[in-house]
């Protein structure tokens, strides 16, 4: 949460420090979970297929890593079409 707020304030900042931090965040999340971005895409596609079997999906689902300390979690967001 804190890093989210920080990110908002840092938005205009295109410094190399910012780029290093952004790249590290992604790389460390994948390193820790032992995954790659291709695997993320596979997981995303498979989850969408399962959901799509039963519900109508609206828009693009997203799969992201969230970090809590040294632990990572998968954050999956799938917009569902309303009636």
């Amino acid at each position: 949460m804190l890093s989210f707020i920080k990110n908002i304030f840092k938005q205009d900042d295109h410094s190399s420090r910012r780029q290093a931090n952004d790249r590290l965040r992604v790389v460390l999340a994948h390193d820790r979970a032992g995954t790659s971005s291709e695997l993320m895409e596979t997981i995303q596609e498979e989850i969408i297929q399962v959901i799509a079997k039963h519900m109508d999906i609206a828009g693009k689902p997203e799969v992201n890593f969230i970090r809590e300390g040294r632990h990572s979690a998968l954050d999956i967001s799938i917009p569902i079409k309303g009636r």
């Binding site: 890093s3 410094s15 420090r17 910012r18 290093a20 931090n21 590290l24 460390l28 040294r70």
Partner: peptide, 19 residues
């Protein structure tokens, strides 16, 4: 370099590494 935005700060590193 940290001040000019071209090096990660100590806070950045502790946030990444959490130790």
């Amino acid at each position: 370099m940290v001040k000019s935005g071209n090096m990660m700060s100590i806070e950045d590193l502790t946030e990444h590494l959490c130790i």
